[in-house]
Design a protein around this nucleic acid. Structure first.
Lengths: 211, 211
DNA sequence: TTTTTTTGTGTACACTTGTTTGCTGTCTTG
DNA sequence: CAAGACAGCAAACAAGTGTACACAAAAAAA
């Protein structure tokens, strides 16, 4: 008779989520994962899956919700260290990328999910991005770096920033996790993108609204 | 005895590719498609698949190569109509979005492939984006709109533009193909993004290189 | 024309998939 | 300590999967 595990409540649930992320990290796409495959990777019997999730979409959704929370906490802490305005972008990008490297599988999952096949997951990720964008707005307001911008223009700018950073995910998943040179290139390039955007924002009113 | 079809050479091949795109258009992710599923959608026996492709990755790759070419031709033609500088961005975005609507399934496939599971497809799409970026560079040079920018700064700007437009794909696939209002919103927003970027580019040298 | 190559078909096989059902051990609550 | 909810297990099933093989019709080459 095989041993019963049942260590802590919720442990199998976590193992299943982690197993899915592991497979994603190995190059698989989340949409192509099957229940049996995930349970196998988790070292659990297939039926155990149904104790925690209704189907793979459900797992994906819970992944976004749960890890999204963790992510927000991390980002919030990180932002406390970037209170002085100069070097703001460079540091922010560096912090973001270091988070990506620490939670590589999850971020790959996020990148996949943006065009994934579950509408719910898609929407979850989009809302996560919206959240980052609004947090960024608040930060910039607080630092009084954008006093000349109206609310809707500020929101536009932050949205573009978040998109740009999010797109850099697709660059990051294309290189080996330990290819420091390439990662540094991506970091520099993304930083320059952001500088370009902020220069645009700084001159926005003067050039586009003068009329 | 079932009739033999065999009308034109390569017809089944096209049917298979189109079938895959059709399924993608119906909300499925390319990575989750199976050979049998595609052949079924194409109205062809499963073994016929192997006459044209080694596996699904191969099909994806050929899809990028083949439709990428078509796409380039379309874009090139379209760009001939936008030779005057004013309204350049607005029109370009409008043209792009109209192409997306005409070839919706293929563009969804492209968006999926950026973070897809086949490294080869990923690289193919990335190179497609690079191509657009370099074409855009040429156009801007030709129109003499960016004389103050060095080559590498121009390239940076165009890359950011292409990324921004590409990201708008993920917005587009989130709305119904006939939801004209939403699509118009996306169009306007994307246009403003590009304006922001170009204002940044216009002030790039003056602000970031003066030192 | 005849011959060869290409392309689509039907059948077949071993394997994987999602899901159901019934059981047993363990934790939690009273 | 007893009772019941919870979580994991094994076995089973129908349905679907990728791929192999041998054959036939059409097209291309001779």
């Amino acid at each position: 008779m095989a041993e019963r595990k049942r260590r802590k409540p919720g442990e199998t649930r976590d193992k299943l989520m982690e197993a899915a992320l592991t497979l994603v990290g190995k190059g698989r796409h989340f949409a192509s994962l099957g229940i049996r495959e995930v349970t196998r990777q988790a070292g659990v019997v297939p039926t155990a899956f149904y104790r925690h999730f209704r189907n793979m979409d459900d797992l994906g959704l819970q992944l976004v919700d749960e890890l999204g929370l963790v992510l927000r906490r991390m980002m919030r802490e990180a932002r406390l260290n970037v209170l002085q305005a100069d070097k703001l972008m460079e540091e922010s990008v560096a912090i973001f990328i270091s988070h990506v490297q620490q939670n590589r599988n999850f971020f790959i999952f996020m990148a996949q999910g943006l065009a994934g096949e579950s509408r719910a997951v898609q929407e979850g990720i989009r809302s996560e991005l919206r959240f980052f964008s609004s947090e960024l707005s608040n930060d910039l307001r607080r630092l009084r770096l954008v006093d000349h911008l109206g609310d809707s223009d500020l929101e536009l700018t932050c949205d573009l920033v978040v998109r740009t950073v999010a797109f850099s995910l697709t660059d990051l998943i294309g290189v080996a996790p330990d290819d420091d040179y390439q990662i540094d290139q991506i970091k520099k390039r993304t930083t320059r993108f952001l500088q370009l955007i902020f220069i645009g924002a700084a001159n926005w009113q003067a050039e586009s609204r003068p009329k």
